[in-house]
Amino acid sequence: MSELLQFVFSGITVGAVYALVALGFTIIFNASGVVNFAQGEFVMLGGMITVFAHAAGLPLPLAALIAIVVTAAVGVALNRLAIEPARGAPVVSLIIITIGASIFIRGASQLIFDKQIHSFPAFSGDDPIHVLGATILMQSLWVIGGALAVFAGLWLFFTKTLLGRAVLATSNNRMAAQLVGINTKFVMTLSFALSAAIGAFGGVLVTPITLTAYDVGLALALKGFAAAMLGGMGNPKGALVGGLLLGLLEALTAGYLSSQYKDAAAFVIILAVLFFMPQGLFGRKSTDRV
């Protein structure tokens, strides 16, 4: 029993990060229809920039803030320099552009930072808390709490603020949003900034547990993507549930089946979802206008 609880704890911690990555995917996908394979690089940048800013002598909260702001700027640059100029290009081209961006960001980080594995101290010490025979790290609570706070904040943003509703309107119908006077270009910029900032925030939260390096982004992007598919592409609620479910499945696979095939869980899920319910758990069936 305590063993199962232990797996659940670790699964939810990792799952919270997947949920944040999936949420980032969702925001960009809704605003622009682009599947952003560079999403994982945002998480990497969040962790790496914090590491290096902290090592340069800045206090941790300031270092984390800088990391999130810089990553958001990278997100905006990605939109302005690579996605906007290719507007109207076929899906194939957009996918290749974001994969190119992810490889580019990885290559640049390898040069700017280094190839070592890094970490920084946990926010509130390394002492684990004992719950019913299992243990959970304080940092895990930070990760889970942080993810929940992001989801709550975004929910408020999208439902209660004019700007949030403008973003929703743009994702529903770009042309119609433009006609009622919404600055859709700004909405795109905002979506990329928001999505990058959320990714970086996830990176800041999880680095003390999982450590970070220049090449962690790709795996995270793929897992986050699996989570978004599982929940239903384009649905924030789906991103949360999909992320947590994927984290749990991975932890249980590692615990009870095979730790070697832990990472396979995500891809088996992708295939199973596509085979049996391509709209995901919360997705709607889409129809096409001709």
Binding site: A86, L94, I96, I97, I99, G107
Partner: peptide, 19 residues
């Protein structure tokens, strides 16, 4: 050292400018 950097740039550049 720059291989990834260049590969990424080539991918983006071709897709943007020479679709």
């Amino acid at each position: 050292e720059y291989e990834q950097l260049i590969l990424g740039l080539v991918m983006m550049g071709v897709m943007i400018f020479l679709q």
